[in-house]
Write a protein that binds this DNA or RNA. Structure first.
Lengths: 172, 172
DNA sequence: CGCTGCTTTCACAAATTTGTGAAGTTAAGA
DNA sequence: TCTTAACTTCACAAATTTGTGAAAGCAGCG
């Protein structure tokens, strides 16, 4: 791929696209192993490795060697789970897909919704098993653990932001 | 199923096995959605809902309506990821499978190994992208986030144990 | 208003994953 | 050592998931 084409995609000139691609695929594989759909993982990893944090459908299809249909499916999923958002490129009929949050990892905290659902199921289960049974007690304790975690995770994120702000201040 | 049979499985007499089964399946479905193999999820959920925290292969096969082969596969996985351990029942040729830790949710912290692998991949990626590029900076920051989290999660677990101990003390 | 090009949807084929039956292996007990 | 119960492995069939090409849908622009 020519440097001009790279510029076109908003990447640094002359970066080693082959090495970048290896990284994209390696990280995507990790995401996939963690339970994310394969194409969604690859699309997300590609966005993460792009300078602008944004790519068009065509660029994704070309870079990942997949059909527009596959891009569409992956993006639908990523938008739904709030990892990517869709932007219309003004003056064209082309969409751009962007990392939902530059601080994308904060999204991992959005697991909240998952945790909440788990809590509901477990709370109901504890009731079914009965608080006076070993199994019921075990499940009830699990619920408390999740409640505790839910609260603490927010605190933790706040601490991270401080930590990060401090680091940025030191740098300058 | 007769109460005698239930006793045989170490469950409370007279618990509503049908409702328990619904709970097992519901929670298993959550685990599956979160990326765990289906049979592994079901086996784990069944153990979680058992009073003794331990079941034999035959009991699992019967309760979940699956073949011994399926139990074997599920257990192999669960043992590997340290959620279940295998025990030989002395004086018989029957294995028992037990929740690895009564405080099973602590295992969620064992995600450490996963986080560490992610960190490696991302660190390498940051190098490839170059620290002076937006993409490289983004990935490098992700690495720092994981490093931070790794450390804080231990602290958090410790706080939970305190929290829990205190609650137990209040109860008595 | 209709053409044009980008995106999505749909039906299907390919690939992968899952669970089973049956054979194989291991170890307890006679 | 032999028998046999229990678990594991293996090869395969079934089910599910995945990605594609082709057609349909939409939105910009003339």
């Amino acid at each position: 791929m020519s440097e001009q084409a790279e510029q076109h995609q908003g990447q640094s000139a002359g970066r080693d696209e082959e090495a970048v691609s290896r990284f994209v695929e390696r990280f995507a594989a990790e995401l996939t192993e963690a339970g994310m759909q394969r194409m969604a993982s690859r699309v997300f990893a590609a966005l993460l490795a792009s300078d602008s944090g944004t790519l068009t459908s065509a660029e994704l299809a070309e870079q990942l060697q997949i059909s527009p249909a596959a891009v569409s499916g992956a993006v639908r999923y990523l938008v739904q789970v709030n990892m990517v958002r869709r932007e219309r490129e003004p003056g064209t009929r082309r969409d751009r897909y962007r990392l939902y949050n530059e601080l994308w990892y904060e999204t991992l905290g959005n697991r909240e919704k998952v945790l909440t659902r788990w809590e509901e199921v477990l709370r109901e289960g504890a009731k079914t098993l009965g608080p006076d049974t070993p199994a019921g007690a075990r499940v009830a304790e699990t619920v408390e653990f999740f409640e505790f975690m839910q609260g603490e995770l927010d605190v933790l994120l706040e601490r991270w932001r401080e930590h990060r702000a401090q680091r940025l201040a030191e740098e300058s």
